[in-house]
Design a protein around this nucleic acid. Structure first.
Lengths: 347, 347
DNA sequence: CAATTCTACTGTATCGTTACAGATTTCCCC
DNA sequence: GGGGAAATCTGTAACGATACAGTAGAATTG
């Protein structure tokens, strides 16, 4: 018996080799197939046998060999997170990674991080994953209204979820922050403070939530009778450029008395610009921003901030891909999180 | 011939199936083994054959099936990054991930992120990787002087690199920031500004770089004739606690006139504490911090800052593990990065 | 009680790759 | 021209898991 090579050492010394189905089969006296089926609770295996197999497996610390499963079934047990390296630096990435891990840690899935540069083709990493079948599910961010990655993955039948929405009529799982509500409420908060000349530091125009932000912003301006002071940068611009642009604006005759920023890093640059122009946030101008950590409040307590729970977003996204892998219809895997304003903004 | 099932479609329509060695073997008329060996440039394959195989492989967009390789050879082509979820929030994690990816993107390695909580056993994730053989190499951080993960991985012969050093005599690859130099130079900078009563917000005492930091700090105090004002928190404490501690200290009779922080987030809390006590950084007290983004300078331009290039650290760490995997001796895979002070600190 | 169905289990082939032990052909040398 | 080495190439088995098509024996049925 060939098995003996592996099990012949009856002295009881350290069993170094990693246990496989064969090990369990040998120990229980069953066939490998039976063991395999017993461990997945197949209906054609006797209850007592299952129990016995499970006990031995537990005792040996058996963990299925991922390569074996993957080769035979095609199931990788991998979720790929496709990240832009140009993503906001301030904790966004780590929070989303940790959020995803929160959920995956209770599953057999591993998280593979696949960064790309928006300077190159954003389709590349997705194509790679599709062509090599290297993941069971994919999470992407920086979604565009008609994102080619979304249509590609749907066409190729790859489960995925997106951080952000598209605007095509392709139905897919997503999690998104309600940027329209955010912008609307931001303006409302400024108006409540008596501000009427309001500038917006928006997301890049390519991304879907740019439109959401603008709609909320403009609606609120209209409803509350405020006026937009145009600003010619977005949050993807270098901080220095945002600062300079804001400084110029603040020194001009049409300086805003309120500014809404779509990112924490952007708000920091805006604040620097305001101060460079000799103004003070909270006195000459009010500044609203969203943030994924509490950092802004530590820096300038009189900034008006709302919290976007990116870690929870990560959790939602992970739940969504897994749901999709398990066959849940996409329309049941969509969620939108609401802005949470810090104390005192709205009462 | 069984192959025909796969290649019988002579109409030339879409070759959807992913190509394997068998595909190439069929197209070139060679054996599977030959193709395999040709692609790895084995010496017993004819030059012309190799060329032909490479051409066909390229043309088909052949990519070796990772599960096949892994099952047969045990090589996973995976680097595992083991991260504490309690890691500094401000971009540390993302920078290190992107740095590692910079290097891995030119290799067949994928990056798997494995977070853990320091509340639980830090050995767990490492043990899991060792027991399941799920990576060819591991990167860990938050290194302790006698880190059990290091001895475990050496014992089990798992290539790894560490962000931070140990103090045992186990030789292993690492990358570290020179915290001793940082603390020394930080004190020197404060003394140069006329400060003499200096407090330190150190790393947690468990970690190796706590000692490095303290040595640099105390040496500089001694050399430059300054005095330590004790502070009873470390950078792992909640920001609120740091703030309160600093505020109390600043209000006391033995308030420091200089503070050195070992993290950017810590510096923000320190600054808040200083201001809460009615003092101003740059006037009543000078504050030195290191940071991995430029954020502090945007917030409080008169903080004294030095830059720790965490992304480059990620690159170094990735190069180091890969070196180790390829058999480079560990002592050749050690590096220490020096603090880079912002303009004007030292001239 | 023979025929059928059920229950519980098992052997074989296979996924894609590579290690290993040949096999075939050519070439060289004495 | 026979022996042997060198140069190329190839078939088989194996890694660990699972799909599938059985099989043996017990239970049920008419």
């Amino acid at each position: 018996m060939k098995n003996n090579e592996k099990f012949g050492d009856a002295t009881g010394v350290l069993q170094r080799e990693r246990p496989t189905l064969k090990t369990i089969a040998f120990m229980t006296g069953l066939g490998v197939t039976t063991v395999s089926r017993a461990l997945k609770d197949a209906p054609d295996i006797g209850a007592e046998t299952k129990e016995r197999v499970r006990m031995v497996a537990r005792q040996l610390g058996y963990q299925p060999n991922r390569a074996g499963v993957r080769l035979r079934t095609g199931k990788t047990n991998v979720i790929a997170l496709v990240l832009s390296i140009d993503e906001e630096i301030m904790g966004f990435t780590s929070q989303i990674v940790f959020g995803i891990s929160d959920v995956l840690s209770g599953t057999p899935y591993h998280l593979v991080v696949t960064p790309y540069s928006i300077a190159k083709d954003p389709l590349l990493p997705v194509r790679y994953i599709l062509d090599t079948g290297s993941a069971d599910g994919v999470i992407i961010s920086r979604i565009e209204p008609d994102d080619p990655r979304v249509s590609l993955m749907i066409e190729r039948n790859m489960p995925f979820s997106t951080h952000g929405r598209t605007e095509s009529d392709l139905v897919h799982p997503y999690h998104d922050f309600d940027s329209e509500a955010y912008a609307y409420q931001a303006v409302r908060a400024l108006v409540a403070k008596g501000r009427r000349k309001i500038a917006l530091l928006p997301p890049p125009g390519r991304l879907t939530y740019f439109a959401h932000t603008r709609i909320g912003f403009q609606t609120a301006l209209h409803v509350h009778g405020a006026e937009e002071i145009p600003l010619r940068v977005n949050i993807d611009a270098p901080l220095q450029q945002i600062r300079d642009e804001v400084e110029t604006l603040m020194r001009s005759s049409h300086a805003p008395d309120g500014i809404v920023s779509s990112s924490a890093a952007g708000a920091i640059a805006v604040n620097a610009g305001v101060e460079a122009a000799g103004c003070v946030v909270g006195r000459d101008v009010d500044l609203v921003s969203k943030q994924s950590t509490e950092i802004l409040n530590w820096i300038r307590p009189n900034m008006i901030t709302c919290f976007e729970d990116v870690r929870e977003a990560g959790r939602e996204l992970a739940r969504a891909v897994i749901g999709r892998i398990e066959g849940v219809p996409p329309e049941k895997l969509q969620s939108i999180s609401q802005p949470v304003w810090s104390d005192g903004v709205f009462d």
